Simulated assay, not measured.
Amino acid sequence: MPHSRWQTGSDQGLTEPEAVSEVLHEIRLAMELAAAVCNRRTELGLTQAELADRAGPTQAKISRIEGSDAVPTLPLLTKLARALDASLHITIDADDARVSFTPHTSAA
């Protein structure tokens, strides 16, 4: 069949399989975490290497986290939050996931 006649699943009236939907949800969560780490790091004016020095993993690991290619363990998330001088908040609902860092306030 020529490619001009190919149809996607949605063109054929098929719905997204549950497994694909679950994978997409996991990817979105990884992307939320990646954005939160990158945003907080840049707010502090840190390079990936400087964050790695503070938190313990390699700069390459920080790069993979910020690129959504790696999801850190809970112990590493704890180290990242400390290194970023912030509290980590992860909210997971049925259809939504949000990740954010809340900076610690410094006593004056």
Rank of each mutant, 00 (worst) to 15 (best):
R28G: 11
P2G: 10
S100H: 11
E18S: 13
A83L: 08
V23N: 09
A34D: 06
K61D: 07
L24R: 15
V23W: 09
K79E: 15
G56S: 10
T105D: 10
A94W: 05
C38K: 11
T15H: 10
V20N: 09
G56Q: 08
T105F: 00
Q12W: 08
A60I: 10
L74G: 07
S21W: 08
E22F: 04
A107P: 09
Q59R: 15
T42Y: 02
S10H: 11
L51H: 00
P57F: 05
A30W: 01
M1W: 04
D69F: 10
T91W: 01
R64L: 11
S106Q: 12
A36T: 05
T91H: 06
R98F: 04
C38Y: 03
S63L: 05
A83P: 01
L44K: 08
D95W: 02
A52H: 02
E66V: 07
P2R: 13
L29I: 10
M1K: 09
R5V: 11
T47Q: 00
Q12E: 12
L84R: 03
T15W: 07
P17T: 15
F101V: 02
S63A: 15
L44T: 06
Q12F: 08
L29W: 01
P75W: 12
G9Y: 06
P75F: 11
M31Y: 05
E22M: 05
P75K: 13
G13P: 05
S10Y: 08
I90G: 03
T58E: 13
P57S: 05
D85P: 01
E32H: 05
A49D: 08
T42F: 01
L33Q: 04
S4T: 14
L14S: 05
S100A: 14
L74E: 10
A108K: 10
P57K: 06
A36L: 03
F101D: 02
P2L: 13
L51K: 02
K61G: 00
L84G: 02
G56N: 09
E66D: 07
T78D: 12
P2Q: 12
K61F: 11
I65W: 03
E18N: 11
K79C: 12
A34I: 08
A81L: 11
Q12C: 13
L74T: 15
L46P: 04
N39Q: 13
A86Y: 04
N39A: 14
S10A: 15
L88F: 04
E43D: 15
L29C: 07
G67D: 07
L46F: 08
L51I: 03
V20H: 09
G9R: 12
Q12V: 10
V99Y: 00
A94P: 03
V23K: 13
L77P: 05
S4C: 08
Q48P: 03
P17C: 13
Q7E: 14
E26N: 13
P57Y: 02
A55Y: 04
T8W: 04
S100G: 10
A36P: 05
G13S: 06
N39F: 06
G13W: 01
D11I: 09
L29T: 11
P17D: 15
H3C: 09
K61H: 13
A36Q: 03
D96V: 09
I27G: 04
S68K: 12
A81D: 07
Q12S: 12
A107D: 12
